[in-house]
Computed example of a mutant assay.
Amino acid sequence: ENLKAIGVKISLDDYGVGQTSLGRLKMLPIDELKLDKCFILKLDESQKDQFIVQSSITLGHQLGFSVVAEGVETVGTLALLKQMQCDHAQGYYLSRPLKADQLELWLEEYDGVH
């Protein structure tokens, strides 16, 4: 709560696995859900993963959170996430991890493409 009071945004990482239960969503002062990559890696192949991801995005939005999908590795997965109205995506399809100076160049190139 103190961090939020000074403007820090808080993400719940690896949502859907481990200790990230539904009950915690209403108790934790979070701003964003990061969907675990185990649901994203084969999203374009698995209808079950699609159901889980779509319902998680909807729930996150209904609770006022933005939603990030981790592990985006194909254009098909990215297209599904756009269709599901996922707010943000991260993964090797978009870019490998970059140093700050490389990030600036990537952002300039990416902005002109998409």
Score class of each variant (00 low, 15 high):
L43A: 07
E1T: 14
G7Y: 11
G7N: 10
C86T: 09
D49M: 10
K99N: 07
L3S: 03
G23Q: 12
S66A: 11
I10G: 04
D44C: 08
L41T: 11
C38M: 06
T20E: 01
R24E: 00
S46A: 12
Y15I: 03
D44K: 07
I40W: 01
Q90A: 08
L103W: 05
S11M: 05
S46N: 14
K48R: 13
L12W: 02
W106I: 06
I57C: 05
I52Q: 01
Q102N: 08
V68C: 08
V72C: 08
V53D: 08
D36M: 02
S66P: 03
Q50C: 11
I6P: 00
L103P: 00
L22D: 06
Q62D: 11
L107I: 15
P29I: 08
L105K: 13
A5C: 00
E73G: 07
V53N: 05
S55F: 03
N2M: 04
L94Y: 14
E73P: 01
K9T: 11
K34C: 03
Q54A: 15
V67H: 11
K82H: 15
K4M: 02
T74Y: 09
G7W: 03
D111G: 06
H61K: 13
T58L: 10
Q62I: 05
D13P: 02
G18C: 01
L63I: 07
G112S: 09
V68Y: 03
T74P: 12
D31Y: 13
Q47C: 00
G60H: 02
A5H: 02
K82D: 12
I10D: 02
K48W: 10
V67N: 06
T77K: 08
A79Q: 14
P29A: 11
T20H: 03
V67F: 06
